[in-house]
């Protein structure tokens, strides 16, 4: 009973949250809406990365490459083959997932620092390919005039309208992520994260579980890449470098990798900070580096997860003082 009620509260919270988000265009100006769209795109990647890091216990420093792969696939297919962008975005997501599968197949045998380096290398190689395969990708200049998304005759070239597309994609990826987390799959992943030997002893195929999550996170990154390409209508290799991979991982750990929602909040926080400080970029990067170190030392589970834990303790203390409450 109690579990059911908690689930109801959780879903209510999520629905209300999305309702609030859906009304944002009423309050925010165009600049802030642009940031909101970028946040949404980052959040989608971060959902996948949080599954990978917080639940499967693996790391990737190459997700910007998969993000780029999604963006380039969709851009190339829609500009050169003149396919419908809705289809090409899906194609980009699937191709990025396939690439993640192929990278993960050998790389996930590695652990910790080795895996970090291997994925970093794979990401950089993908970025180099975006530059060097200039016949397809347009080289360093990239691809421009990428078509906008359309619904019937309505062209989604306004930030306000595009926001809803991104919001819908965020909702779908959150739904998928939560389906994984709040099921036997999530239990198996947590078991594996707890102890691989024990997980294997209860029948969890750890290699396959890791590969599944890595592939899923690739699909999310590719989806985000497609949404990015058709929003800006222009992409170049600079947007898909290692520094973005690192920023994405930072969003996950600063928010809290063991909760998809906390990681999403981390994405929002860091996107706002990095957009807001764009003009003072040099100084903000110093703080960014330092805050990564400080968060790891003082809040290793992530800001939002630690804050939630503190809040929970406080509530528990207040409830206790007021005497037991029937729940």
């Amino acid at each position: 009973m109690r579990a059911n009620r908690r689930r109801l509260v959780n879903w209510l919270g999520i629905v209300c949250g999305f309702g609030l988000l859906a009304s944002l265009p009423l309050f925010l100006n165009d600049f802030l809406m642009t940031i909101a769209v970028v946040i949404g795109i980052n959040v989608i990647i971060v959902f996948g990365l949080s599954l990978l890091m917080g639940y499967a216990g693996q790391i990737s420093l190459g997700h910007a490459g998969l993000y780029g792969l999604g963006a380039y696939t969709s851009a190339v297919m829609s500009t050169k083959l003149h396919l419908d962008p809705w289809l090409t975005i899906v194609a980009g997501a699937l191709l990025a997932g396939a690439a993640a599968y192929l990278i993960g197949l050998p790389a996930l045998r590695l652990r910790g620092h080795y895996l970090a380096m291997a994925t970093l290398g794979a990401g950089v190689i993908m970025q180099i390919m975006f530059v060097e395969l200039s016949g397809i990708t347009g080289g360093p200049a990239g691809i421009s005039s990428i078509p906008n998304l359309k619904i019937g005759h309505l062209i989604l070239d306004q930030t306000g309208a595009y926001f809803y597309v991104v919001l819908a994609a965020v909702a779908v990826s959150l739904w998928l992520s939560l389906n994984v987390v709040r099921s036997q799959k999530g239990r198996a992943l947590r078991a594996m994260h707890g102890n691989e030997l024990a997980a294997a002893s209860i029948g969890v195929d750890t290699a396959r579980a890791k590969l599944f999550i890595f592939t899923l996170s690739g699909v999310f990154a590719g989806l985000a890449g497609g949404l990015y390409a058709h929003y800006l209508t222009y992409i170049s290799p600079d947007s898909f470098g290692t520094s973005l991979s690192i920023l994405l991982v930072a969003m996950v750990v600063i928010g809290g990798s063991q909760s998809v929602v906390a990681a999403g909040l981390g994405a929002a926080l860091l996107t706002v900070i990095s957009e807001y400080f764009r003009t003072y970029q040099d100084w903000s990067l110093v703080f960014f580096g330092l805050s990564l170190v400080l968060v790891m030392i003082f809040a290793p589970r992530g800001l939002f997860v630690e804050t939630a834990a503190v809040a929970k303790r406080l509530v528990a203390r207040v409830v206790k003082r007021r005497g037991p409450v029937e729940s």
């Binding site: 389906n179 099921s183 036997q184 239990r187 198996a188 707890g194 209860i202 969890v204």
Partner: peptide
């Protein structure tokens, strides 16, 4: 698995006998 409940520890183990494909969960 210390972070799970007692019940969930056992439920996690049903992975061995009751397997569904990934799309079912997704």
């Amino acid at each position: 698995f210390d972070e799970m409940s007692v019940e969930e520890n056992v439920m996690a183990a049903t992975e061995a006998g009751l397997r569904l494909n990934a799309f079912a969960y997704l």
